[in-house]
Design a protein around this nucleic acid. Structure first.
Length: 291
DNA sequence: CAGTGGCCCTGAGCGC
DNA sequence: TGCGCTCAGGGCCACT
């Protein structure tokens, strides 16, 4: 479920309340995609740093008890020049993080729980494709391995038409699959991929390498625009996405093509189509989008 | 080495 | 009402 906007909305809702909080205990339930990689008890007493996002991953720095006691402040670890350990979190297909001030009974799908001095943070993930992995640093160990090979941040300063064009150069796969792969630009999942291609007027079946400078520019613009609007709308709640406070997103209400096959295009009136590419559904308008 | 397909899980929705 | 089938927002990895 969660694509970049949902992960960013989650981060925005947690960064303030969690920064500087103390982890009293970490409770692990049913196994997720990967093991934690450390005994949960070893993390008790750590101080939670500033939550970061890379693609669809969240990085939660955990200043060890000693560092916290020695007076290191959250966010100052970079200046100190030392790698900060932490947890790399992925929400998979159905995960959501929620911070609750009052302890409520945990649900059957609350597989990871952070008990902190600011309340309970819970990872709710029915499909268990999500993950929480400990790493001695963001740029070393398991975190570095998982983050290696990710493309550029679409909402960052490094993403533009040239980067996109270079990344797509010589690729024979469809633009839909190339964009989804995440090695050129990160965070564009199935929903926003269809939406961005619609906005750029590009048929999802177009071979990626065939896109020239003009269309790459339009596509880069569309990707950024769609993702930005989605963050502003609080993400998309198709089935079970909720932000850190438990609120629904509303971007699904402004979707132009996703999930609308058989219905008329809002721009040209043509009947929207659904096709399957790489075992994933793609939605597009045969009137507005061209090869 | 780019590209493809399997697989990790659970739940919702639909046809019969 | 109930069963079985299909599909779902992701991404790693083995294989061609």
């Amino acid at each position: 479920m969660p694509e970049l906007p949902e992960v960013e909305v989650t981060r925005l809702g947690l960064v303030e309340p969690l920064e500087g909080a103390h982890l009293l205990a970490l409770h692990m339930g049913k196994p997720l995609r990967w093991p934690l990689g450390i005994a949960p008890q070893a993390l008790a007493g750590a101080c939670i740093g500033r939550l970061q996002r890379r693609g669809k991953y969240l990085w939660m720095p955990l200043l060890p008890r000693r560092a916290a006691v020695d007076g290191a402040r959250p966010g100052s670890e970079a200046a100190a020049g030392q790698e900060t350990p932490g947890l790399l979190i992925h929400l998979g297909m159905s995960g959501s993080l929620r911070l609750e001030a009052q302890p409520t009974p945990a649900g059957v799908h609350d597989h990871v729980q952070w008990q902190t001095d600011r309340g309970w943070l819970r990872l709710h993930d029915p499909r268990r494709f999500g993950a929480v992995v400990w790493s001695p640093g963001r740029d070393v160990g398991p975190a570095a391995r998982l983050l290696a090979g990710l493309g550029v941040e679409p909402l960052g300063p490094d993403f533009d038409a040239a980067v996109l064009r270079r990344g797509l150069q010589g690729r024979r796969v469809s633009i839909k699959q190339a964009l989804l792969a995440g090695d050129v630009v990160v965070g564009v999942g199935n929903i926003y991929c269809s939406e961005a291609l619609f906005e750029a007027g590009i048929d999802p079946r177009t071979p990626a390498g065939r896109l020239g400078p003009q269309r790459c520019a339009r596509l880069a613009e569309a990707v950024r625009d769609v993702l930005q609007r989605a963050v502003q709308a609080g993400g998309s709640t198709l089935r079970d996405f909720r932000d850190a406070q438990g609120h629904d997103g509303s971007f699904q209400l402004q979707a132009r093509v996703y999930g609308r096959d058989g219905q008329p295009c809002r721009r040209c009136g043509a009947t929207l189509r659904r096709i399957v590419q790489g075992q994933r559904a793609s939605y597009f308008c045969p009137g507005c989008q061209h090869r």
